[in-house]
Amino acid sequence: MSHHAKDLLTLAKAVIDTEIAALAALPSRLDDDFLHACETILACQGRVIVTGMGKSGHIGNKIAATLASTGTPAFFLHPGEASHGDLGMIVNGDVIIALSNSGTSEEILAILPVIRRLNVRIIAMTGNPQSSLAQAADFHINTGVDKEACPLGLAPTSSTTATLVMGDALAVALLEARGFTANDFARSHPGGRLGKRLLVHVRDIMHTGTEIPQVPPDASLQQAILEMTRKKLGMTAITTPNGTLLGIFTDGDLRRSFEKGQSLHEQPISALMTVSFRSINAHNLAVEALNLMQEYAITVLPVIQDGSVIGIIHMHDLLRAGIA
C-alpha cells in the first residue's frame, strides 16, 4: 500500500471516529424538551412539516420520509420556497420541525413570524441552544457537535449525522408510542419486499380450480404422470370424488419409486403416494409457505381447507410475487 493510500485510510478512519464521538454525545441530550416534542407530535391533529436549508434540508427530507413511513404524517417544506407561496401548505394544528445547525438560518427565521400567526407548534433541532431559532421554538432538541469531521471544520458532516440520528430517535419513539406494527409499516410500503412479505397471503397467489393437479386413488402411475405434466407443478394430489385429500405424489416420489425398483405399472397411485406431507392454509402469509418449503427442502405445498385441497402453491409462485 502506498504512503498516499495510507494517508487516505487514516483520514477516513479519523472522520468515522469523529462522527462516532458526536453520536456518543447525543443520548445525554434527551431531556424534557425531547419528551414534550414527542407529546406535541402525538397530539398533532395536522401534519408534521420538516424544514431546513442546504445540507440540513437534505437531512430534513429524510426525517420527513421516515416519520411518514412510521405512522406520523409528515412532509418536507423548503424554507426558501415557503415565502413564495408554499406557506399555504401550513395550517392551524400542524407542527413544524425546523433544522439548522447554527440556529441562525435566515430563510427559516424569516418565516417564523408568519408561522407563529398560524398557531402551530415549533420544534427546533439546532447545535446552539442560545441561537435565535432555538429561543423562538416551543421546544429545542440539541444536536450540537464538538467538531465537524471535515478537516477544514466547514463542511456539515458530524452535525448533519447527529441531526439525522436524532430524527430517527424521534421517529422510532413516536412509532412505539403509537403502537405502530410491522403490518402498519407494510401497508405504507406495499411495493417493497417487507410489504409483500407481510401483506401477500397464500390465497392471493395459489393455483386453484382446474389448475390443481389431482387424480383419484385408483389412477395408474401413467395417469398421474400425465396430470403432473399437464399442470406443470411437479406434483399431483390424490383425492376422493368429494375432494378429500388422501396423499400427494411428486417428482421426487417418482424418482424414489424407480430407485426402489418397485413394480410401478401394476400398482395404483394410492400405493405409491406420500400420505405424510406438509400443507398450509389459504389464510397463511405467503412467507409462511416459503419458511415451510425452506425448512423441509420442498418446492410445493397443497393448500388445505376442511381436509380438501383448495389450492397448490409452488416456490415459483413465491418468486414471482417477490416473496422469496
Rank of each mutant, 00 (worst) to 15 (best):
S83W: 00
H84Q: 03
H84E: 01
G85M: 08
G85Q: 07
G88R: 00
M89E: 12
V91K: 12
V91W: 10
G93R: 12
D94C: 09
I96N: 08
S100N: 11
S100C: 08
S100A: 10
G103I: 09
T104Y: 13
E107F: 02
I108Q: 07
L109V: 13
L112A: 13
V114I: 14
I115F: 06
R116W: 13
N119Y: 11
N119W: 06
V120E: 03
V120A: 04
R121F: 10
I122Q: 03
I122Y: 05
I123T: 08
I123K: 07
M125K: 10
T126M: 01
N128C: 12
N128H: 06
N128S: 10
Q130F: 09
Q130G: 11
S131H: 06
L133M: 15
L133F: 13
A134G: 06
A134N: 09
A136S: 14
A137F: 05
F139Y: 15
I141F: 09
N142K: 03
N142E: 06
N142G: 03
K147P: 07
P151S: 15
P151N: 14
G153D: 06
L154Q: 11
L154V: 15
P156S: 07
P156N: 08
P156D: 07
P156C: 03
T157C: 05
S158K: 03
S158T: 14
S158I: 05
T160E: 00
T160M: 00
A162R: 00
T163A: 02
L164E: 10
V165W: 04
V165N: 07
V165G: 02
V165D: 03
G167F: 01
L170P: 08
A171G: 02
A171D: 05
A171R: 07
V172H: 07
V172T: 13
V172F: 13
L175C: 15
G179N: 04
G179W: 02
F180G: 09
F180H: 09
T181N: 12
A182R: 15
N183K: 14
D184V: 02
S188C: 05
S188D: 00
G191Q: 00
G192P: 00
G192I: 01
D204W: 08
D204V: 04
I205A: 01
H207Q: 10
H207Y: 02
T208A: 05
G209V: 06
G209S: 08
G209D: 10
E211G: 08
P213W: 09
P213Q: 11
P216E: 13
D218A: 12
D218I: 06
A219D: 05
S220H: 08
L221W: 11
Q223T: 12
A224C: 12
